[in-house]
C-alpha cells in the first residue's frame, strides 16, 4: 500500500466522520419523546407549578406536592414558588389565583399543612357506576372500603423513576389538632417601631400574628397616600416569615395602612430620616406589628 493510498483512506474516514456528525446533529437529531418536566420551557414550568399548587390546594398532600415540585429541577422550589407568585401579582393576576402558590410555598417552608381548615374535597362517591361498569377496571379495582382511603399511594405508575417518595397516606397528617385562627378575625396594631438600617432604607415592614403568635399568611393590606394606593399580601416572602409583608416608602409622604381583613386602619406612617455617625443621611424604616386578639 502506498503512502498516497493511506492518505486517501484517512481522508475518507474523516469525511465520513463529518458526514455522520452532521447528519446526527442537524439532519436527524435525537428526538425527545420521553422528556421530564425539568427541561420544560420556563412558562410551561410556571404552568406546572400552578397546577401542582392547585392540586395541593385540593388535597393538602404536602409530601406529594413537594415530590412533584422536585421534578421541575428548581434549585430552590420554595423560592421559585414565591418568585412566581410575586411575578403573577405584579402582572395583575387576581390574588385568588396566586394564593395557592403562596400557600404551598408557606407550607413547604413550615413543613406541614398550615391551613388544615381549608375544606378538603372528598372524592365523589367511590361506587360511582362509571368506574364500576368499566370492563377493564373490573379485575383491578380494589373493593372500596373505608380502609381504602388510607391505602398508601402506590408509586407504581412511575415505571422508571419513582417520583413520589413513599408515604403512608394520601392526606398529610396534621401536626396538631390546633385550630388555626380564622383569618377574618380583625388584627389590631400592637407595635410600631422605627428603625435605621441603611441596607433597608424607607422600608415599611408589617408582621401579622395570631393570638398564639403564629404568623398569618394571606393577609391583604392596602397602603394609601396622597398620590396613590398599593395593595399587597403577607406570605410572599416566606424566607422572612409567613406573616411578613413589606412596602417601600417615599420621602416626605404620609401613608395610611388598612388591613382589609377586619378593617384595621393605621394612619400617618412616614419614613424618618436617619443619620450615620459620618453624617450620611437616609430614610429609615418602620416595623408595624399586628395581632389578632
Amino acid at each position: 500500500m502506498t503512502r498516497n493510498s493511506n492518505l486517501h483512506i484517512v481522508f475518507a474516514l474523516l469525511i465520513g466522520l463529518g458526514i455522520g456528525v452532521a447528519y446526527s446533529w442537524f439532519l436527524s437529531p435525537v428526538t425527545y419523546v420521553d422528556a421530564n418536566p425539568s427541561i420544560l420551557r420556563a412558562d410551561f414550568k410556571d404552568q406546572y407549578r400552578i397546577v401542582i399548587a392547585a392540586s395541593y390546594n385540593a388535597n393538602l398532600d404536602l409530601a406529594r406536592a413537594n415530590a412533584r415540585l422536585i421534578l421541575l429541577g428548581d434549585a430552590d422550589p420554595v423560592g421559585a414558588l414565591s418568585a412566581q407568585a410575586q411575578r403573577m401579582l405584579a402582572a395583575g393576576e387576581a390574588f385568588e389565583k396566586v394564593r395557592p402558590l403562596a400557600q404551598l410555598a408557606t407550607d413547604l417552608q413550615l413543613g406541614y399543612v398550615s391551613n388544615p381548615n381549608t375544606p378538603t374535597p372528598l372524592p365523589t362517591s367511590f361506587s360511582t357506576p362509571e368506574v364500576e361498569s368499566t370492563v377493564e377496571v373490573a379485575e383491578t379495582i380494589i373493593p372500596v372500603t373505608e380502609e381504602a382511603q388510607a391505602t398508601p399511594i402506590p408509586t407504581l405508575f412511575f415505571e422508571q423513576t419513582p417520583l413520589i417518595p413513599t408515604f403512608s397516606e394520601t392526606i398529610t397528617p396534621r401536626p396538631t389538632s390546633t385550630i388555626n385562627p380564622v383569618i377574618s378575625i380583625p388584627f389590631t396594631l400592637v407595635g410600631q417601631e422605627s428603625f435605621c438600617d441603611p441596607s433597608q432604607p424607607a422600608l415599611m415592614q408589617l408582621m401579622f400574628i395570631d393570638s398564639r403568635r403564629n404568623q398569618v399568611a394571606g393577609v391583604e393590606i392596602i397602603a394609601t397616600w396622597n398620590q396613590g394606593e398599593d395593595r399587597f399580601f403577607t406570605g410572599f416572602k416566606p424566607e422572612l416569615g409567613n406573616g411578613y409583608a413589606d412596602f417601600v416608602m417615599q420621602a416626605n409622604t404620609i401613608y395610611n395602612i388598612r388591613v382589609v381583613t377586619g378593617g384595621s386602619l393605621v394612619q400617618n406612617i412616614s419614613a424618618n430620616t436617619c443619620t450615620e455617625p459620618n453624617g450620611f443621611q437616609y430614610l429609615g424604616g418602620v416595623l408595624l406589628t399586628f395581632q389578632q386578639p
Binding site: 484517512v10 475518507a12 474523516l14 465520513g16 466522520l17 458526514i19 455522520g20 452532521a22 447528519y23 446526527s24
Partner: peptide
C-alpha cells in the same frame, strides 16, 4: 478500502452525534 473507511467514518460520526 476508501469506501470502507468512509463507511466507518460515517458510522463513528453517527454514533458520536446520536
Amino acid at each position: 478500502k476508501i469506501i470502507i473507511a468512509l463507511a466507518i467514518g460515517i458510522g463513528l460520526g453517527l454514533m458520536y452525534g446520536w
